[in-house]
Amino acid sequence: MTFSPQLEQRFAKMLTRYPEGRTRSAVIPMLIYAQDEVGAITRDVIEEVAKRCKVTPVQVDEVVGYYSMLHRKPQGKFHVQVCTNISCLLVGGEELYEHAKKKLGVGHKETTADGQFSLEEVECMGACSWAPAVEINYDFHHHVTPEKLDQLIDGLRKAH
């Protein structure tokens, strides 16, 4: 399989970064960038990454199961990740997550019927001092209140 020219360029560069014969090191970055483009880690992606990094498919499969950001099923166009870990918990993270569930009508690791949004309750993502925090795709949002989350989601809905 082939990826977009930009991604192909990224992968080509990526494979040269590691010491000679250590292309296996590119497995995880390659998977997450491929997921960003393809939408999920499909069997094809596993086989392709294995081929490019010169490892066996099961070596890639092992990695896919291990890392929590790698998904075998497509997520929504906007993946809403709400942290409920301790710092967020103390300042309304759980309430925010409950609110997000109601707002989107989906639960943990579920996707809305239109494929626009998916929701995930996540572990600490490093925004503790500006809690509660939400990450939508790769964008951080700090001091998020239910109202602010509504605005964020509505804004994304409108724009797309």
């Binding site: 099961v58 070596q59 092992e62 199961g65 291990y66």
Partner: peptide, 9 residues
């Protein structure tokens, strides 16, 4: 052979 691995976490 390397046919087995460890999945999930």
């Amino acid at each position: 052979v390397g046919a087995l691995g460890v999945g999930n976490r």
